[in-house]
Amino acid sequence: MSYYLALIGTTDNPIYEAEMGTYRQGGDGVPKFSAEMKELNPFIVHAAIDIVEDVQWRSNSLYLKAVDEFYGYYISAFVTPGNIKFLLLHETKNDESIRQFFNDVNDLYVKTVLNPFYNVNDPITSAVFDLKVKQLGKKYL
């Protein structure tokens, strides 16, 4: 199983993306998207932004569960209070662990925002952030 995570800024600009594989069921943590899917991932995820913007006002929680589906791929969303969208493309439904994953990514994102040299909507280039997100992927996905 493979996962594709994108963080989307307030002007619908991508600020971070990562592909992750699962470590569950003997997985080795390497994403196994086909070459075709690799190119499609950002499109599918970005297509879901409209739906997220619809759903986010109808829900009280930050975590919006699976908002969209595309030929067997689900897109789950999380919107921070500052309107940064976390979108995760995944193959099986697993609301609870994805919720925990998003919550922890949100903690990391908050720490990034607290860095005085980081401006909102800038791409996140920190290697530490990248590493920690991947550790969270290993823990929850």
Partner: peptide, 8 residues
């Protein structure tokens, strides 16, 4: 320096 990462 809590939370700080220098510009890269």
């Amino acid at each position: 320096a809590e939370f700080v990462e220098l510009p890269d």
